[in-house]
Design a binder for these strands. Structure first.
Length: 135
DNA sequence: GCCAACGTTGGC
DNA sequence: GCCAACGTTGGC
């Protein structure tokens, strides 16, 4: 079954346009066990939101998981994983954190409960609802 | 720039 | 195995 995710990045370091320019890239550098465990659960074809943290604080687009999880090439430590991703579609209107906070249907999102987790699951209903909000 | 929340490290 | 100290992340 297809799963849904949210991946966070600081746009000054690595933003939507960086991934768009590359076409496809690996989502590397995750050094948190909880986040790593979510990466381990990813499958080809899963979808995820690309979230810009820091200045903007908003979901800017949808990305697609294009590989199974494999060892993160940016470290020799075998316990870290990454997956390949590519841009699926940019949101017509970004959905801001502020907006998410006002939606009672989204109040149980991990984004609100654990704002520091950089890779997190999103429920199907929440995913689809956010897509509606972005129109 | 500040601070809260969270994770990690290391002494005991 | 507990907990204090420290570092990092991210919203404000």
């Amino acid at each position: 079954m297809k799963k849904y995710w949210l991946l966070k990045s600081e746009p000054d370091t690595y933003g939507w346009s960086d991934l768009e320019g590359l076409g496809e890239d690996h989502w590397d550098g995750v050094r948190n066990y909880q986040a790593r465990n979510f990466i381990r659960d990813m499958s080809v074809g899963d979808l995820g939101f690309f979230y810009h943290s820091g200045k903007a604080c908003e979901i800017v687009g949808v990305i697609k998981i294009t590989s199974a999880p494999y060892q993160d090439p940016t470290t020799s430590d075998g316990c870290w994983l990454c997956v390949n991703v590519k841009c699926e579609k940019i949101l017509p209107k970004p959905v801001t954190l502020k907006q998410i906070k006002t939606e009672s249907r989204l109040s149980n999102m991990v984004l609100l409960k654990n704002s520091r987790l950089s890779v997190q699951p999103v429920e199907k209903d929440a995913f689809e609802y956010i897509l509606q909000l972005s129109r």
